[in-house]
């Protein structure tokens, strides 16, 4: 069943359709929340809470095709709420082996996530929405409530930082 049809059914109160829909999105939503919160447990909480909100509010979603962007926005908001609460809390050391999730990716993939965690909050957000949630500049701008140009420059800088972290240049290279 197509996403559009699943959303329509979920809006009509079909819990099973909502569950199927969630299965399509939960991994990348979790990746997004983990990138932003930098905590496996906070990410799990944020996704759970966001999906509960999405389930309660899905009737208010006008355009079923926008479900992906809509639920991304709810997750980002949940993450930021959690982060604000965490300001005074000493961050817990992330365990060397994942506990809140099962890793189903390339062996060195978690190194890349650690590099993402090294970015500033603004940069983590745009990277997650762009590459985990596969969103366009305009959509990200809408979710974050900032101009497209801001998203673009954040993404450029974030990707440059990740390049530097993942493959430090050996030769001194001068652009242009």
């Amino acid at each position: 069943m197509e996403g559009y049809e699943l959303v329509r059914r979920a809006q009509a109160g079909d819990a099973r359709a909502f569950t199927t829909l969630v299965r399509h999105h939960e991994r990348s939503l979790y990746a997004t929340a983990y990138a932003i919160t930098r905590s496996q447990w906070d990410a799990a909480d944020a996704v759970q809470d966001a999906l509960a909100d999405a389930y309660a509010g899905i009737r208010s979603l006008r355009d079923p095709d926008r479900f992906g962007a809509w639920v991304s926005r709810i997750v980002v908001n949940e993450c930021n709420t959690l982060l604000r609460k965490r300001v005074r809390v000493v961050p817990m050391e992330e365990p060397p082996e994942p506990q809140a999730f099962v890793w189903d990716g390339p062996e060195d993939g978690l190194d890349l996530m650690r590099a993402v965690h090294g970015l500033s909050p603004d940069h983590r957000e745009v990277v997650a929405l762009r590459y985990f949630r596969d969103m366009k500049l305009g959509e990200i701008a809408e979710v974050l409530g900032c101009p497209t140009g801001t998203v673009k420059s954040r993404l450029n800088r974030a990707v440059a930082s990740l390049e530097a972290a993942m493959c430090p240049r050996t030769e001194e290279e001068v652009s242009r």
Binding site: S28, A31, A52, A100
Partner: peptide
Amino acid sequence: VADLKGISEAFVPRDRFVP
């Protein structure tokens, strides 16, 4: 970018949401 996209589906949350 390819590596980032490659991990977008790699996180399988242990707690799955049930409405």
